[in-house]
């Protein structure tokens, strides 16, 4: 299987879906000549021409709204918003419009659209360019949200998102674009709303998504040296949320730690922990721990930024705290 980067995997997904279905169009800020702020749309204009991929002004409101309208008009648009921080400017189009069309208009029409954006921090871009706001969007019925952690998932989830008849937000991570991994060639799909066990273990379950999946895997490797085997569940989709996979793991390990880059309060970890205690309370041997981003606006200085983002050390600490309580 070819080893390619996360960026190349996304590009491949776009390329394949544009070739497969001429209704798939791409637009956004600097997606044509520039190739996308993170290089994901590089080369597409050469292959598909400027009717299939178009630049927009820096105007997220109309990018979001035009994606909704284009989908209503029969296209399957993939719009790029550059970053999730700018998606706030498009959030009216996404939450008030994209998420409502199918339901509010009596099920007459669906809006098959994908909005791609970068989330997360770690590149010293300070507080307005480093946020992990995915929980805001995952909160909304009518939207789907995917957060690929690996190149294979990036390709498979984006392809599924483009084929889905609903509005799907594909939230990528700035620090993952250069990560390499094995990616199946051709028509490889990852279903939306399906988590994956990225590492098996019997002692504790880590529930993570996006880049924190890699952090959880690193923590699992460290713990393994001490004889603790962690199972790592990568949610992959935040909405729909695949609790079955999470619950099956927790029923086996009886302990869980959620790992997210976003702020802890009202977060994905809070939702997952709540659902675990609602549905698998009797299986728990210890309170669920949450490892999350420190609740501050992201600072620029390297040492401060690093201190604000969860790493493997903090995950290991959370595990130790939890194991002390349960005498394993």
């Amino acid at each position: 299987m070819p080893m390619i980067t996360y960026r190349e995997a996304l590009n491949q997904a776009l390329r394949e879906e544009m070739a497969r279905d001429e209704r798939v169009v791409v637009f956004g800020e600097d997606v044509v000549a520039y190739g996308g702020a993170y290089g994901v749309t590089s080369g597409l204009v050469q292959d598909f021409g400027d009717k299939r991929i178009m630049d927009t002004p820096i105007a997220e409101g109309v990018i979001g709204g035009a994606a909704v309208g284009a989908a209503m008009g029969g296209l399957r648009p993939v719009a790029e918003l550059m970053t999730i921080n700018f998606a706030l400017l498009a959030s009216d189009a996404l939450i008030n419009h994209a998420a409502k069309v199918h339901h509010m208009f009596g099920g007459q029409m669906s809006v098959p659209l994908v909005i791609r954006m970068v989330g997360g921090g770690g590149a010293q871009l300070a507080s307005t360019h480093s946020q992990s706001l995915e929980a805001m969007f995952a909160h909304v019925p009518g939207l789907k949200v995917v957060t690929p952690a690996t190149p294979a998932d990036a390709k498979g989830l984006l392809k599924s998102a483009i084929r889905d008849d609903n509005p799907v937000l594909c939230i990528e991570h700035a620090l993952l674009y250069r990560v390499r991994g094995e990616v199946p060639e051709g028509d490889f799909l990852v279903p939306l709303g399906k988590a994956e066990v990225k590492r098996e273990g019997k002692d504790i379950t880590f529930v993570a998504y996006s880049r924190m999946t890699l952090v959880a895997l690193e923590a699992a490797d460290r713990l393994s040296q001490e004889g603790i085997e962690a199972e790592v569940v990568d949610l992959r989709s935040l909405r729909p949320l695949d609790m079955e996979t999470v619950l099956a793991s927790v029923r086996k390990t009886n302990r869980a730690v959620t790992v997210e880059e976003a702020w802890r309060t009202y977060g994905i970890g809070a939702e997952v922990a709540s659902r675990i205690q609602e549905e698998a309370f009797d299986y728990l041997d210890a309170p669920i721990q949450r490892v999350a981003g420190v609740e501050v606006p992201m600072p620029y200085a390297k040492n401060l930024e690093q201190a604000a983002i969860p790493d493997a050390r903090r995950v290991v600490e959370a595990v130790k705290k939890l194991l002390v309580r349960t005498n394993v």
Binding site: R23, G65, A66, V68, G69, A70, M72, G73, L75
Partner: peptide
């Protein structure tokens, strides 16, 4: 209004 732009884009593209 942005939705109308998208509808217009679809009309042109299709």
């Amino acid at each position: 209004l942005p939705l109308a732009v998208g509808l217009g884009l679809a009309s042109n593209a299709l």
